[in-house]
Design a protein around this nucleic acid. Structure first.
Lengths: 225, 225
DNA sequence: GGTAAACTGAAAGCAACCTTAAATTTCTGA
DNA sequence: TCAGAAATTTAAGGTTGCTTTCAGTTTACC
């Protein structure tokens, strides 16, 4: 998670860096609006923390220019200006959140998490080995390659990716995918596991669906020999 | 744009309704947390405005339960509680913005626009592949060519352009375009997807509406062979 | 080596989806 | 207000490809 801080007060910028780096973020700081705008437009950041009052290009202008350039990185605007007018101007300039100084560091972190959460809500996926199951597009993804799953294939895959390396019985899969009272038989599961295995190898995944006699299936990462 | 207000003070709820309806939003209000949670989970709203202090289920609990149910509708939390702790709790419960009463109506509108903007519901246009959906004129644009959409066609198109390559179930389209309590059937969606496909090819778009059996529809850019 | 479990491929069945066209409702301009 | 156009709904029939079935083969374990 890369965060860019645009803040001319070095002391505050530095303490923010320390705080966020301590929380595991990858942080960069710049100390004026011009530079901030240039960095922000690289589009490589997951979040911008932007001060309003800066010499030269101020925060509102930076936000407006970043948005005009169709860069949609979330912006957390941070400022001593606490007037309603200022907050409105900030939000309308393209900011996603307006936080007034002085602020509580826990509140800042909660804001950051809220913004990143929304950012990440776009793609919901489960990963195992080098492979991801995308819940939004119902596809298996491995590096460049990806392959779409049918509805039933997806249901089975989701159960397996949930259980990961823990065993999942055929009865459990039957009950949850076909329904407890359906007249589906265990061979259905076998056929669908076959489908999934084919698709996993097709995209070059290192994930294997291992069957354990009488106990069911679980995922494993293929070891190189 | 459908907004759900969850607020037990009827006076405030009603004045919010009036304000937002005046701005062209489609607003519904409910007056307790239980009902609010149920309505919110329908997943048919573009935004929730949620009061914290309510008898029974409070705003924090509603937010938490809605998020637990994997419902990602943006939440604007609105409350008289102004303490830092409260703001942190609200954000961590799943809110996207925390606004303290009393608030300026222009600030509220700025927040709403900021949240909807991030949601992907741009005010001007939404693009996918070589094609744009103009929200002002409700037309599909591809290079020189453009074609006008009817009201329902536009509603369906907007949902698809919002979801982009993520699956959108027919159920969800039905609920959000025809209303969850209408007696519309899935064939309506099929017919309208047919209309949109015809119009997309008519303007030479490289965007395809792909159907995934049992899971719904999503957009894809046609690959050259 | 025998047995039970698991796997595979091919073909049939069927639900989901698409298309079309006509009927109905809503909108629009004179 | 009314006629005509546009939009929406309804319904039937065609098509697709997911799902199921099943028989034959392979694998694992005793």
């Amino acid at each position: 998670m890369k965060i860019l801080i645009i803040e001319d007060e070095r002391l505050l910028a530095d303490s923010l860096c320390t705080l966020l780096e301590g929380k595991g973020f990858d942080v960069e700081a710049v100390y004026d609006g011009e530079t901030g705008r240039e960095y922000a437009m690289l589009g490589i950041y997951d979040l911008l923390i932007l001060d309003v009052m800066m010499p030269g290009l101020d925060g509102y202008q930076v936000a407006r220019q970043v948005r005009t350039a169709r860069c949609s990185t979330p912006i957390l605007m941070l400022t001593a200006k606490s007037g309603v007018e200022d907050r409105i101007e900030g939000l309308n300039a393209g900011a996603d959140y307006y936080l007034t100084k002085p602020f509580d560091s826990r509140e800042l972190l909660a804001c950051i998490h809220a913004l990143l959460r929304r950012q990440g809500a776009q793609v919901d996926e489960m990963t195992f080995g080098n492979t991801a199951l995308d819940l939004g597009t119902s596809t298996l993804i491995c590096g460049e390659k990806s392959i779409r799953l049918s509805a039933k294939e997806f249901d089975v895959a989701r159960l397996l990716f949930q259980s990961r390396d823990r065993n999942l019985s055929k009865e459990a899969i039957l009950a949850r995918v076909w329904g407890y009272d359906s007249n589906a038989v265990e061979n259905h599961v076998e056929v669908y596991v076959g489908f999934l295995r084919k698709k996993l190898t097709a995209i070059g995944s290192d994930v294997r669906i291992v069957s354990v006699r009488r106990l069911g299936y679980h995922l494993e990462v293929l070891m190189e020999c």
